[in-house]
């Protein structure tokens, strides 16, 4: 299929006796935002590194724009690794030029984009400083800029939101949506489900190296679709969400929570119980959030020890 940006066909990767990725299939249509979800150690970074040809899969194959990954494809990809670094002694502008140049772009192409992005990100005054002078947040913006300023067709972001403050998180979200509008394909990994929910067209949830849930966000929610109650209760003495009829799981605070419901649960009975315990400010029954689904799938989400 020509309209796929990335395609994993039953990809397996082992490190010694430890299977990091275990039969991963995924398809990322061009011009969409794809989320690679999962807890720490689920195989997200390994999958991305195989995609970047850092190491080869032991089984299966990976296609990028319909071709097995090769050197000539690299300029079309922008990659933001999970652990990020910059050349400390280099000036920011020079470094961005270098990163752009090894992606095959010349100065005439890069300079105006560095300037424009720099201004938008509030980095304009920092472009001629050395990277070691940047704050952590600034450095992260520079890293993101280095990932996109050669205008790749496919952007791969490994945990892009980690370590960002709320303002910059929103900013990054806007930029990602904007890139999609311009036709760029974005694949990113995260273990924060709310971000995936609000951004992704499609997701795959990795669990112990295996894909557990895949599809569009709506599909996944509907398929996993035991309903949930989103509630807020004020003025209760003690935890109002304890021992409610038909509730199999609670996540949240003693004031506001998402209640996972048993298949035969009666919302009216739950509401009645809550009314008796305090002032109900919110009561909504709908399909559960990815966060809740994730928790259910990843029940004992402790990272694996290598064998």
């Amino acid at each position: 299929m020509a309209d796929l940006a990335v395609q994993f066909e039953h990809v397996v990767k082992r490190f010694g006796g430890f299977t990091a990725v275990d039969g991963l299939d995924l398809e990322v249509p061009r011009g969409t935002i794809f989320g690679l979800l999962g807890p720490n150690g689920a195989g997200k970074t390994s999958s991305i590194r195989m995609l970047m040809n850092v190491f080869a899969p032991d089984e299966g194959r990976i296609l990028v724009f319909g071709e097995p990954i090769h050197e000539a494809l690299k300029p079309r990809i922008g990659y933001l690794p999970e652990e990020r670094g910059l050349y400390k002694k280099m000036r920011v502008r020079e470094m961005l030029r270098f990163f752009g140049a090894i992606k095959g772009r010349d100065r005439a192409f890069l300079d105006p984009r560095i300037q424009r992005w720099g201004e938008r990100m509030g980095l304009a005054g920092w472009l001629d400083r050395r990277a070691e002078e940047l704050s952590k947040g600034m450095a992260q913006k520079v890293q993101f800029l280095a990932t996109v300023c050669h205008e790749p067709d496919l952007v791969i972001l490994d945990e892009p939101f980690s370590g960002l403050d709320p303002v910059n998180r929103d900013f990054l979200r806007d930029v990602v949506l904007e890139l999609r509008k311009a036709g760029t394909t974005i694949l990113f990994s995260t273990h924060v489900m709310e971000q995936a929910e609000s951004l992704c067209d499609r997701i795959v949830l990795l669990w112990r190296g295996k894909p557990r849930l895949a599809g569009t966000v709506d599909e996944v929610r509907r398929r996993e679709g035991r309903e949930a109650a989103f509630v807020r209760v004020d003025g209760a003495s003690g935890d109002p969400f304890e021992g409610l009829p038909g509730v199999v799981g609670v996540s949240g605070t003693p004031y506001e929570a998402e209640l996972a419901l048993a298949p035969d649960a009666d919302p009216n009975a739950i509401l009645a119980a809550l009314l008796a315990r305090g002032r109900v400010r919110r009561f909504e029954v709908r399909t559960p959030s990815l966060h809740e689904i994730f928790k259910r799938v990843a029940g004992d989400a402790s990272p694996r020890e290598p064998a």
Binding site: M52, V54, P75, G78, Y79, P81, G85, Y87
Partner: peptide, 17 residues
């Protein structure tokens, strides 16, 4: 070692072999 420890190496390898 510096490129390795500040992880620039991954960005580099996404561009060059």
């Amino acid at each position: 070692i510096e490129e390795k420890s500040n992880r620039v190496i991954e960005v580099l390898l996404s561009s060059v072999s």
